[in-house]
Design a protein around this nucleic acid. Structure first.
Length: 295
DNA sequence: AACCGTTTCAACCGCTCAGTG
DNA sequence: ACACTGAGCGGTTGAAACGGT
């Protein structure tokens, strides 16, 4: 959307921190007139800022409904899990955290979560190393490792969930072996995998009446169809650590899928809108053994 | 109290994408 | 088809706050 050139006279724009007066001017103006064109907002609001700066200030600080203060444990886990799936797609991650901005999440990631995740991964590697060097049961491994790590790691957010997930993966694995590799993964409706944006945009899928999924597989914009779908299916499934489906994600399936040259229409034939897809379908389509989900 | 290194977070910058003429 | 422009996004910066000595 373009604005009239008359709306943007040449002004020496102010930079730096916003004063309370500036905040008040911007807040009043946007609440009263909206922000159909950000470049005209500073002019009409009597601010010596550029439109970009006003937009950022509104979105990150002044917008109603913003949640200030510390992140909750649940929010941390949501960020961690979404970041694993989506990467540095801060705006997409922010869409799943009401009242949080992409900038806030990004800052929190760099200042807190990245460090915590590094410690968790370090611990996970340590545990896996223990697993490969001993044939004892998982209970023995857990107790021996936990006793040595009890001081720091057990107090980290997400630790309990991670351990629950690992324990569950372990028990699921045993079940799997007993059942002769009969899948214990939940069936997920394909419709549930689709994000609202994908359905509405029509770029990746049509209106939903035809049994057709993405015609172009991955594309550069509108993010990645499968990636989005997986992330949403993931969220709909559990919304946190601990699900069967997530076990696959945490143990490398997600990386396998995202790193592959996966073409949905080519690889999974005969699956349409509303059909159910299991981990088996994905694994077989990728020529992957289902074991990859339970490393 | 003063200094210094580290952390946090608001804001800026540069880029891409989409809409418009 | 092309150029221009605004919106939006992610990476980066730098000032302020904090903590240790």
């Amino acid at each position: 959307m373009k604005c009239k050139s008359s709306d943007k006279p040449k002004i020496k724009h102010k930079k730096g921190l916003w004063s309370p007066e500036e905040d008040q001017r911007l807040r009043n103006h946007v609440l009263k007139h909206g922000h159909a064109c950000w470049s005209s907002v500073p002019v009409n609001a009597g601010l010596q800022r550029n439109g970009k700066s006003c937009r950022l200030r509104w979105i990150n600080y002044l917008r109603p409904g913003l949640k200030r203060g510390m992140f909750t444990l649940q929010e941390e886990e949501t960020i961690l899990t979404l970041h694993r799936v989506l990467g540095n797609k801060w705006s997409q991650i922010a869409q799943h955290l009401a009242g949080r901005t992409d900038n806030e999440i990004k800052n929190y990631w760099h200042s807190h979560l990245k460090k915590k995740l590094a410690k968790l991964e370090e611990m996970e590697v340590h545990i896996k190393t223990q697993c490969t060097t001993t044939t004892s049961s998982s209970e023995n491994i857990d107790s021996s490792v936990l006793s040595s790590n009890n001081n720091l790691t057990t107090q980290m957010p997400g630790y309990d969930s991670l351990m629950n997930h690992m324990e569950k993966s372990s028990s699921d694995n045993n079940d799997l072996i007993q059942e002769g590799h009969k899948s214990s993964l939940p069936k997920i409706l394909f419709a549930e995998w689709l994000s609202l944006e994908n359905v509405q945009s029509g770029s990746s899928v049509n209106s939903g009446h035809k049994p057709v999924v993405s015609r172009d597989g991955f594309n550069t914009h509108n993010t990645n169809f499968l990636q989005d779908s997986l992330s949403h299916g993931y969220l709909l499934n559990e919304g946190g650590f601990g699900g069967d489906f997530q076990a696959g994600f945490h143990n490398g399936l997600m990386d396998e899928i995202l790193n592959s040259e996966f073409k949905f229409e080519d690889q999974i034939s005969g699956i349409g809108f509303g059909d159910s897809i299991s981990g088996d379908d994905i694994c077989s389509s990728l020529n992957m053994n289902n074991d990859v989900m339970y490393l």
